[in-house]
């Protein structure tokens, strides 16, 4: 049963990556039309345009272009940047390292905070505290990151001067300085994720509080504190794990905005810069690497969930 589930899940991840690769290829190599013209601008000499098109290999048939692009990508050759005239791989690896630091700070803050918010809301269900956490959480979730980012910069960076408004730390700065510079950029991501995590934790808690095993635990005379810690929390927080992993996709989108706003050289600002300057090999490689990372993250989360949750592991997963 579990082997079939895993095989099915891996097959789905492969389909996703194939669709993504076709989408990326289609958007970056087919739809823009004349690539050299797009790079050189409309006033370029037609002969130079032809030479550049030939040099870039974009005058070959589409199927040939796709297969040669995807085979070299799988062999580790991610292509050469149009703008930097150098292999894109080092740029992407460095940018991903930066983004991982920012994402880690955000995750380390939001996971405990979101779970706490959800648990407190569930223990006060339908009372004012629950309404405040729920409505506040959803409102924070739909607030665009650049909006909360601007307000946070103004309050903590410009008026109170507690935190630096740029994420770029001085050369050779230690871990603490780096984290200090990343607190403000991480906050908009924390705000958006808080609502999702709190809502899942709240729903899980309410279901667990309402269950027969909780009633049994109460009726056999355990203290309320012990019931919560030993019986409710353990069951309630399982779905929250998956939500945290699936939010990796949102996080990547959020990074594009946050890194642009705070001038942080991560993968989000790399994608944004590549899209603006029509550096298609850079854009393609960065998007594919992110897609693979994301597919792996959700795959691991689903497998972890199925291992932790016997109902999914043994039940008929359709």
């Amino acid at each position: 049963m579990i082997a079939r589930f895993i095989a099915r899940r891996i097959a789905l991840a492969l389909v996703t990556l194939f669709v993504l690769s076709v989408l990326v290829f289609f958007c970056c190599q087919v739809l823009p039309g004349n690539v050299a013209l797009a790079i050189l601008g409309p006033q370029a000499d037609p002969r130079t345009v032809n030479v550049l098109n030939h040099e870039l290999g974009v005058d070959r048939p589409l199927l040939v272009q796709y297969s040669s692009w995807i085979t070299s990508f799988l062999q580790g050759d991610m292509g050469r940047s149009y703008i930097y005239r150098a292999p894109v791989a080092p740029f992407i690896l460095q940018a991903i390292g930066h983004s991982l630091k920012l994402a880690s700070v955000a995750i380390l803050v939001v996971v405990p905070l979101g779970i706490l918010g959800g648990v407190v809301a569930a223990l006060n269900v339908h009372r004012p505290l629950d309404r405040i956490i729920s409505i506040g959480g959803v409102s924070a979730t739909i607030l665009p990151e650049f909006v909360s980012g601007i307000v946070l910069i103004l309050v903590f960076g410009v008026w109170l001067r507690w935190l630096p408004i740029s994420a770029a730390w001085p050369q050779g700065a230690g871990v603490f300085t780096q984290v200090y510079h990343l607190i403000l950029p991480a906050m908009p991501l924390v705000l958006v994720l808080f609502g999702y995590i709190a809502r899942m934790a709240r729903a899980g808690m309410i279901e667990a509080l309402d269950s027969d095993y909780t009633r049994t635990a109460v009726l056999k005379g355990l203290t309320w504190r012990l019931v919560i810690w030993r019986h409710v929390l353990r069951n309630a927080l399982l779905p929250t794990i998956t939500v945290i992993a699936t939010q990796a996709g949102y996080l990547i989108g959020g990074l594009v905005v946050v890194e642009t706003l705070f001038r942080y050289e991560g993968v989000g600002s790399l994608i944004f810069a590549a899209a603006t300057s029509k550096d298609f090999p850079m854009l393609e490689a960065a998007v594919l690497v992110i897609g693979i990372t994301y597919a792996l993250a959700t795959l691991i989360a689903d497998l972890l969930y199925s291992i932790l949750n016997p109902r999914i592991r043994m039940g008929s997963y359709k």
Partner: peptide
């Protein structure tokens, strides 16, 4: 597959 790709 589409939902597995970040919207932005």
């Amino acid at each position: 597959a589409k939902m597995a790709i970040p919207g932005v």
